[in-house]
Design a binder for these strands. Structure first.
Lengths: 209, 209
DNA sequence: TAGATTGTTAATCGATTAACAATC
DNA sequence: TAGATTGTTAATCGATTAACAATC
């Protein structure tokens, strides 16, 4: 377990399972079957079990999965059982939306994703705080990334400057990015980029409309 | 051609090819090979040719693809060779970002995606225009969808109301959606939903960081 | 014990890649 | 014609689904 490489499609489904488990009332549903958890996550029971099997054994035959236990195990697998510091570059409309969208985690232990810093070039914005998130100068990227131990960067800057900022973040040791600018970022092998490209989404939708 | 059903992965790559072709200078590159177009799109030459073969024959053996012709054919296949009217529900920060992001298409013929209407419940916003896009009351959704012939709706509203607005749009005949709210929308078979779920993206990134 | 449900293996399905005949 | 590159078929790869022995 943990040894073989896990397919990316599998990793991407784990947060889905975790979300369903987190929405569940543990008092009400202390145990859940692959049938029910699969149903609520939109996958087949078999696929759910197969996915989990990449990481170990979490259920009891004839019984099901302990809701609380599986939840914690998924957090551990996703490395969300610790504080994961996220930085946001670009405090335009999109950046603002992301800051407001981010609920500083209702979790009591302060565990999981945490937006700890935003970056912009606008002197009007630098030094301010929005929803408790401090805004730094983009110049301070390397410094702040290290000081605050930021491991994920969200890129919400204009397309023209994305590549440059991307490069600078990599140099500061960041290996995980969520990019909202159109176009592919060329990344070294150990760097992971998840992207959201609105134009591509809309254009493929046009086919189906 | 056109008969068999085309895999979704293929449809989703077409806008990528189209983008590369649109960025190309036709004077400079009147003809392009599958090798070069594939390279620039991030796919193998074989995959590019396979993808295109679902829709017909577009190249010349021993030569390559006519840049201008393939561009137009891809637009036709994606149904972007006509004005495609898009509506946006929710003019918060995200909605604003999307409005500003949308360049009303530098295309001379006014062809392709066009954001023609936004909707909100805030009386302060209703009746105004942002970047030329008029803001209507959400109450007017059915009416405006029909009048402006809107075929794609972007959902940028809070999670709690997304399902409801989604339903109302479907009732008004919309069959293609881009959803930014977290959570799965349950849609009838003929309705297509592409989704961007920031939390899921970040949580799966945590695994790779 | 009988019933239920997991974990896992084998079968199926679908997508990608390799290879090459067709042909410009 | 010789060289190049397409369109397409066959081989491979990977992911999903079906099925069932293990076992709670």
């Amino acid at each position: 377990m943990g040894g073989r490489k896990v397919p990316d499609v599998v990793v991407r489904r784990l947060p889905l399972y975790l979300r369903v488990l987190e929405e569940l009332d543990v008092e009400e549903t202390p145990i859940i079957s692959s049938h029910e958890l699969g149903e609520q996550s939109g996958v087949t029971p078999g696929q759910l079990r197969k996915d989990l099997s990449f990481f170990g054994v979490f259920g009891k035959q004839g019984v099901g999965y302990n809701t609380l236990y599986l939840r914690e195990e998924l957090r551990r697998i996703l490395r969300l059982n610790q504080q994961v510091n996220v930085g946001l570059v670009g405090v335009g409309n999109l950046g603002m939306a992301l800051i407001h969208y981010h609920k500083p985690k209702e979790d009591p232990n302060g565990i999981g994703l945490r937006l700890v810093a935003a970056f912009d070039i606008d002197p009007q914005k630098i030094g301010k705080r929005i929803s408790d998130v401090p805004i730094y100068s983009v110049e301070k990227l390397p410094e702040v990334i290290r000081q605050l131990n930021i491991s994920i960067i969200i890129l919400a800057v204009p397309a023209e400057v994305t590549e440059d900022i991307f490069r600078r973040c990599i140099e500061s040791g960041v290996r995980a990015f969520l990019n909202f600018a159109p176009g592919k970022l060329s990344a070294p092998g150990h760097v992971r980029v998840h992207a959201t490209d609105v134009t591509l989404e809309l254009e493929s939708l046009a086919y189906y409309r």
